[in-house]
Amino acid sequence: MRALPLCLLALLLAGCSAAHRTQPIFNEHPTYEPSQPAKPKPVSTRPAAIKLYKDPGALVGTPFRDLGEVSGESCQVNAHDAQPSISNARRRMLNHAATMKANAVLLHQCQIVSNVTGCHQQAVCQGSALNVSFK
């Protein structure tokens, strides 16, 4: 009587294995052998160099195309935060010009403004993004 359950189990296992189609066996974990050690790609945090013109007279005789107005801000949310920085506002203005494919900015003004919506004080820089043909 003990042989009957063993025979049924063997028959069941043989029947299940015959019902499955055989598929090629793929290695789930292929071996990876790099030919050279992987080098990390450099991260560029600086945009292309953008020339800042503070005097419009410096552009006289130089061909350029005006790409539009750009601005940058630095905000002091409340009185206990760090003071707004004109240099940060200028840097953000230059980054905005870089996204417009400009290679120069003519600075119109930088100022610190008080009681702006959302800011206790705010440094703002405004200028024109330019594409200058350097000779």
Rank of each mutant, 00 (worst) to 15 (best):
E73C: 01
D66P: 14
H80G: 05
N78A: 03
V105Y: 06
N95T: 01
R90I: 02
N78Y: 13
E73V: 07
R92N: 07
S87H: 05
V77D: 15
A97G: 08
E73D: 07
S85K: 02
A104P: 01
K101S: 15
A104E: 00
S71Q: 10
A98T: 06
A89S: 14
V105K: 15
K101I: 08
P84T: 07
M100Q: 14
Q83H: 02
R92Y: 15
L94E: 01
S71C: 02
R92F: 14
R90L: 10
S74L: 07
D66T: 12
C75Y: 00
G68D: 11
K101P: 05
D81K: 03
V105C: 11
M100T: 07
I86R: 14
R91H: 06
T99D: 02
K101Y: 15
L106E: 11
G72M: 01
T99S: 08
R91Q: 09
V105Q: 09
A102E: 06
R91L: 08
L107C: 01
V70F: 07
M100H: 11
L106Q: 12
D66M: 03
E73A: 05
A97T: 12
D81A: 10
M93W: 08
A104T: 03
M93S: 05
H80K: 02
H108R: 14
K101M: 12
L67G: 05
P84D: 00
G68N: 03
E69M: 08
K101T: 13
E73P: 04
S87Q: 13
Q109G: 05
S85D: 08
A102M: 04
M100G: 06
A98D: 05
P84R: 13
G72D: 00
G72I: 03
K101C: 07
V105E: 04
H108I: 14
L106T: 11
D66I: 09
R92T: 00
L107P: 00
Q109N: 14
D66R: 03
A79T: 01
N103C: 08
A82T: 12
S85A: 05
S74Q: 04
L67I: 02
G68C: 03
D66Q: 10
H108C: 03
N95W: 06
N78C: 06
M93D: 09
M100W: 11
